[in-house]
């Protein structure tokens, strides 16, 4: 059995959430525990100007509930999605219980020389995230690439999320991902059980 790949698993689960599964929610209607987790990790991992929940920030929040997999559909996780603007960027923040994913259109990372593209990736990473990472970028930067700051350690074997950041370009958008690693346990918490049963019930109504 191949080594479990957390990033691939999370991406599969995000892609598995159909458009109709996302329900708009008001910030004050969020499950209190989910809101607390979300604020805690966002404050840890995003710079203050890139935080959701900022007073006056016009953000759209949506949630998608987890679902077991079937022979035809993959497992889905409990997910939260924020869409808001930071500077001129339309930012999409997708949160699972165990990760923080930022996506944004960044045409300049697909323009110019490799060095210019790499510089733009790092500029945007530092503009949005607190992680002190230098990514190891491939020789060619284009659609479909994936990179990491630390290939020597798997996300579930880190002691802290700060030990490894990941990113890539997918469907024309730049993405960055930080795990929400808790070192006390082996692996991660159950990403299908982030939402309370009550909140999940509201989403499924």
């Amino acid at each position: 059995m191949p080594v479990f790949d957390d990033l691939a698993y999370w991406w599969t689960c995000i892609d598995a959430a159909p458009a109709e599964s996302w329900k708009e929610v008001r910030p004050d209607a969020l499950d209190a525990q989910v809101r607390a987790d979300s604020e805690y990790w966002c404050r840890q991992q995003l710079v203050s100007d890139a935080l959701p929940y900022l007073p006056g920030r016009k953000e759209a929040i949506a949630a998608s509930p987890s679902a077991e997999g079937t022979p035809h559909t993959p497992v889905r996780l409990d997910l939260l999605r924020h869409r808001y603007k930071v500077d001129d960027f339309d930012l999409e923040l997708v949160e699972g219980r165990n990760f923080t994913l930022l996506r944004l259109p960044a045409p300049r990372v697909l323009q110019g020389s490799t060095a210019q593209r790499g510089a733009e990736i790092h500029r945007l990473a530092r503009m949005l995230m607190t992680g002190p990472w230098t990514f190891l970028l491939p020789g060619t930067i284009g659609e479909g690439i994936q990179f990491t700051s630390n290939p020597d350690v798997l996300p579930d074997e880190t002691f802290s999320w700060k030990e490894r950041g990941d990113g890539g370009i997918r469907a024309g958008k730049l993405w960055f991902l930080c795990s929400r690693r808790i070192p006390d346990i082996v692996g991660f918490h159950n990403g299908m059980q982030w939402f309370s049963d009550e909140f999940r019930g509201q989403l499924l109504r």
């Binding site: 698993y9 987890s66 997999g69 497992v75 082996v186 991660f188 299908m192």
Partner: peptide
């Protein structure tokens, strides 16, 4: 010793 795996219905597990 444990191994992390992806269960087709239950998601990741051990």
């Amino acid at each position: 010793w444990m191994e992390r795996v992806a269960h087709p219905a239950k998601g990741d597990g051990i």
